[in-house]
Structures are given as structure tokens and as C-alpha cells.
Amino acid sequence: MTLTRVRIGFLPLVDAALPILARERGFAEAQGLAIELVRDATWAAVRDRLLYGHSDAAHLVAPLAIATALGRDRPAVPMAVPFVLGLNGNAVTFSMRLAEEVGLGDRLGDPHVIGAALKAVAATRRLRFGVVHRYSSHNYMLRYWLAGVGIRPDTDVEIVVTSPLFAADALAAGDVDGICVGEPWNSIAVDRGVGRIALATAQIWRRGVEKVLAMRADTAERDPATVARLIRALHAAAEHFVRADTVEDTAALLAESRYLDAPADAVLRAITDRIRLTPGAEPVHYPDFMFQHREAANFPWRSQAAWLYSQMVRWEGMAFDERDAAVAAGTFRPDLYRAALAGSGAVLPGASSKLEGALAEPIGAGATQGRLMLGRDGFFDGRAFDPDDVAGYLKGLP
């Protein structure tokens, strides 16, 4: 059988697991695909490789796909996100000095308590935080938390961009006081003794959208059959990822030099929801630190894209625009996800949008296939996001 080649760009992060597993554990080949993976060091490089035809799809921070479709910082290119590669999985890590100043303990603290202590430090000196890209969930999650505890991003603290690969180095050099990056780079900072984990981003928005499979919209339109096969391969990889009997094998694979080039133990901790907060400490268990597969976690909810757009408007000082909001939400393609997985064992939500952050307890939800349960998804400040009233939501934010 002749396999269809699909080239996918990625950054060395734990949430690049699904394309890697699809390639290495036969899920792509079972769908008639040969995945070629291209490793980069920055999200800008991954995005540019995709836009200029050097890759067919990408492991990408979700807001960057939306920003590209809207023409932020460059000419607009319509984008399609038919699959979410995972929810949460990031953390906020402080330098050793800042950790001592805010009194971090030996377990994950409360976002409000840590925020109050951080606000007091920020009143005495200018703090700088590193995020992985201007258009990243890391940037928006960090800003959401800071604003929610009374710290003004860009006024009380500075936020700069640093590659995940060099985030620990930036902490060690004193270039930044904190980072918000994906795993395993927070854990590497801790293991090197240059940082302490303050918060998991799941504490800021539980079930927050993170990396996605992104492609140019014309690629999805030109060859929908290949896109459907890729979605099916990634779905099988996600099912494999969450099995208890595969985690050690998965960690060893991801840790290899051609992929993450990182300690296997740090990778294993991330995929088993265990976080080492301080150097040499026993890891603490935080359920759903990196959320995958269950509760239709890979489904591209348009309401998630709408929330990201709301933060783009908020932090760039733009006016809310109905047309831009429609483009942003339309970048996420639940129609492609449903078409690919119809008739399989996958759970398919009946709706394409939902109220985000409103669930305090698990609840059943409508599905066109399978049985869908949705778990707690709250924001730390108790707010909920209605994708049908983005303008109203923005008016109520601090």
C-alpha cells in the first residue's frame, strides 16, 4: 500500500505527543498515512513553515492559528483547526528569589493567595514574566490570572516572549522572574534548581484549550479525505496516550533526542499528573493537570476559540468586531472532526459551542454519537464565558 505523506511541524513539548504516537505506534500507517515530523525551536518558525508550504499541518498554540486567520502582525491566511491536541498542561514557575518573596509552600497554592503576595512584590520592583508567544494561551492565561488578582499586565509587570526550550535558562540568568510554559520545561527549571512551580494553568481555567492541530484552510478543502484520516490517527493516539499501561513507554519515546530531548522522568510526571514543585521534592498529584481524550477533549469547540478571541481584543485594546469574532470562532472546525469520526466509537458532541467555565460538577451533555460527560471547567475567579455575548463579557472584566 502506498502511504500518503503528511509533514507536521512541532515544538518539543509533551503535548506534541499525539502526532509522535501516531507516527511511532502505527496509528498513522493504519490510516494509510506516513507522518514526517519537523522539529522547530519557536512557534513563529512552526507557523511560517506551515504558511509557506514546508509542512502540511502543525502542532500549534491555539491563539496563533486565530491570529493568523485574522491577519495580526502579517497578511491574513484562512486557517482550519479540526482537532485539539490537549487541554491545559502548562504551569507558572517563579524564580527562586521570587518564590521566596511570595512564600511559596511545598504544595500548589491558591491562585488568589499567591496573587496577593505577588501583587505586594510587584509594588516594590518591576517584575518580568516570559511566555512562549504573544499569541499563546500561556500569555492569555497568565494575563487573566494577573488581572484577576489586581496586577495590571504591561503596567505593574512586563511580559516578554521566550522559547520554551530556553525558559529555564532565562530564569537562571535572571532575565525573567517567572515563566508560563508547557511541560517538561517547568519541571526542568525545577530540577535544575532555578525555579519553583507556583500554579498549574488548570487552576486558572480548568479544561482550558492549549495546543491544536492547525492547517491552512485551503489544505483542508483540497484534501478532506487525508484530513479525516489524520484526525482518526490522532484520535487513536489519544486513546493510547491515556492508558495506564502505556505511560512509561510514551514517556521514553517522547524523551528521545529527536523529539523532546528531555529527561524521561520529567515527561512521565507530566503525563501522569504529578508535579515536582521544588527541587528534590516528592511530586504532588494534581488531577487533570494535562487533560487528554476523555470528555471529548480533542473536540474543537468554537466557544474555546471565541474565548481566545475575547482575550486578544482585551489585551490589544481593540474594539470588539462581529466579523472578526466569526472568523475566530470559525477557525475551529467541529464539522471536520465529526465527519472524520462518524461511525466510530468516538463521542461526538451535538453542539459546536458551549458556556465555558460554568460547570462546578460533572454533567451529561448532548451527543450525536456516544455518551458525553463534561467535567468541572471553572475559571479561578468564578466567571463564565458566553460565546454568544462576547461584547458583554468583555465589559465585565477588570
Rank of each mutant, 00 (worst) to 15 (best):
G396P: 00
A319Y: 02
A306F: 00
M141C: 11
G366R: 09
N298A: 11
L359M: 10
M1L: 09
P362M: 06
T331H: 04
G330P: 01
D73P: 02
E24W: 03
D106T: 14
L18R: 10
V6N: 03
E316N: 11
E322S: 12
F385K: 06
T124H: 13
R134M: 05
A255K: 09
D388Q: 13
S344R: 10
G105M: 05
L87N: 11
R143F: 05
P224T: 06
A339S: 14
L359P: 00
S257F: 05
K211A: 06
A236S: 15
V61I: 14
C180T: 14
Q369V: 02
R276A: 15
F320G: 00
L87G: 03
P184A: 11
N298W: 00
Y286L: 10
S353N: 06
D389W: 04
V14G: 04
V267R: 05
Y337G: 03
R5P: 00
A57I: 04
N90A: 15
S163Y: 05
D73G: 07
A91C: 10
V132M: 14
S187R: 11
R314P: 00
E158G: 10
G115Q: 05
S310A: 14
S344M: 10
E239I: 13
L13E: 15
G195R: 02
I188S: 03
I197K: 11
A57K: 04
L372A: 08
P19N: 12
L359S: 06
A329T: 00
A339H: 03
R232L: 11
E239C: 15
A67I: 04
L253C: 06
A255Y: 07
G396H: 02
T2I: 11
L3A: 15
G317H: 06
V81R: 03
A44K: 12
T331D: 04
A58E: 11
D218R: 07
P224D: 12
L21G: 10
A117N: 14
D175I: 04
M312C: 02
A217W: 10
L37R: 07
D218F: 06
A340V: 08
K211I: 03
A91P: 01
V284Q: 07
Y52S: 11
D73S: 13
K119P: 01
D389G: 03
A172F: 00
A147H: 07
W307G: 00
V92G: 05
W307N: 01
A328L: 01
G330H: 05
S257V: 14
A217C: 07
